[in-house]
Simulated assay, not measured.
Amino acid sequence: MESDQGQSYHAQDGHVQAGQAAAARFDAAGWDAVGREGDGTAAIGPEPAGAMVPRPGPVFAALDVGTNNCRLLIARPARGGFRVVDAFSRIVRLGEGLSRTDRLSDEAMGRTLSALKVCRSKIRRRGVTALRAVGTEACRRADNGAEFLERVESETGIHVEIISAGEEARLALAGCAPLLDPALARAAVFDIGGGSTELMWLELRRGRPHLIDQISVPLGVVGLTERFGGDRVSPDSYRGMVEEMREALRPFARRNALAREVARGRVQMLGTSGTVTTLAGIRMGLPRYDRSRVDGTWLSRVDATAIAGDLRALDFQGRASHACIGRDRADLVIAGCAILDGIWETLPVPRLRIADRGVREGILAELAAAARQR
């Protein structure tokens, strides 16, 4: 379970708006089977004796089926926002091999289904009354993405909607917006994913973010790692990844005059992804990753560059032994650092604010806002 259980989030009215697709609603009593957690897998069967009895009142769930991770947050309304009561995250690598075949592999789909059955168990046990589940780049891109999600619904009862890159970015912004500094007129918000990277260019008016432009770059940590390797990465290979990201952002930077805006000193940057949270955890010297300490902290470009250099000097085993990385991310973190370098070369601000929040928190904020309106 993630450390965000019990954490509260708040959003002012007007910062988030209703999603383009309505959240799925269901009666929790309608589930006819439930998975049981133990070793991290899920088994289908009846509700175990002594299972949690849900408290009355609305309970929201947000499920993000990403290219690399399957993530769930369950929350209750609290003082204009929501309070997380349960969480789950597992690296499933749904997009593994996708860049070569344009299809989701049987192994990747199996891993993801196993994780989703754990999510179903938590949803059932917590008495969730409103759920929105979304699929991102891997599901969008794969020839068999829609077919896989039909199988998910058949085997778990969870309907997962494939959302556009624009909707993904909008939800990530809804989750991260409270961390933006209202005193700065411009903001760049990015999300480095497994299959793509989203970047938004914003104007803050009376402290509220308004989208000026956005781009979805089909470069993510899973695809780049498959192409360039995840053990020892040569300086030339690393620079090649940085240049790919920089070139992909060049038209976006030109049409929005990003260099000029940064030179004026009125641009802030906010990042959300496993890459930036990992770098922040390393910079803080955490003995193990702690979301409550990382979310909202700052990371300077100088520190990030130094840490990335240290990580590139290690092999897979060396990175895997680090408390804030582990084996699941040891091969992906170098590609993430390269993508971040490409962003930083495009937007050379001195420091970055770290958000360990995103699509799921955006979904929950909108579910909570809709409940208040009702």
Rank of each mutant, 00 (worst) to 15 (best):
D102K: 07
A75D: 11
R93F: 08
T275C: 12
V217S: 13
L171M: 13
R103H: 09
I74F: 12
I282G: 02
A187G: 14
A87W: 11
A183V: 05
A253R: 10
G318P: 06
L211K: 11
L311H: 06
R120W: 08
D331C: 10
A335K: 02
P218D: 14
H210W: 08
A177Y: 12
V59S: 08
M284C: 06
R76V: 00
T101R: 15
E96D: 15
E247I: 00
L299S: 11
T136A: 06
A172T: 10
A29Y: 10
R208D: 05
T101Q: 12
R372Q: 13
L63D: 06
E153N: 07
S99V: 10
A28C: 00
T129F: 13
F228R: 06
R360L: 01
S292K: 14
A370Q: 13
S216M: 06
R288H: 15
A33G: 13
I192N: 05
E167R: 04
A259R: 12
L116I: 01
D86F: 01
P48V: 09
D191R: 00
R239A: 15
S121G: 15
G175L: 05
G274F: 11
G66H: 05
R264C: 09
L258G: 02
G193D: 11
A330V: 04
Q214D: 11
I343G: 11
P178G: 08
C324W: 05
G19Q: 04
G50S: 08
M241Q: 05
G45V: 04
L340K: 04
I192E: 06
T277C: 09
M284I: 01
A174F: 10
G80I: 09
W201E: 03
A355H: 09
A133W: 15
V262W: 13
V359C: 04
G309Y: 15
S216I: 06
Q317G: 09
R260H: 12
I215V: 15
I363G: 05
W201F: 14
I44C: 07
L116S: 09
F26H: 14
F190V: 02
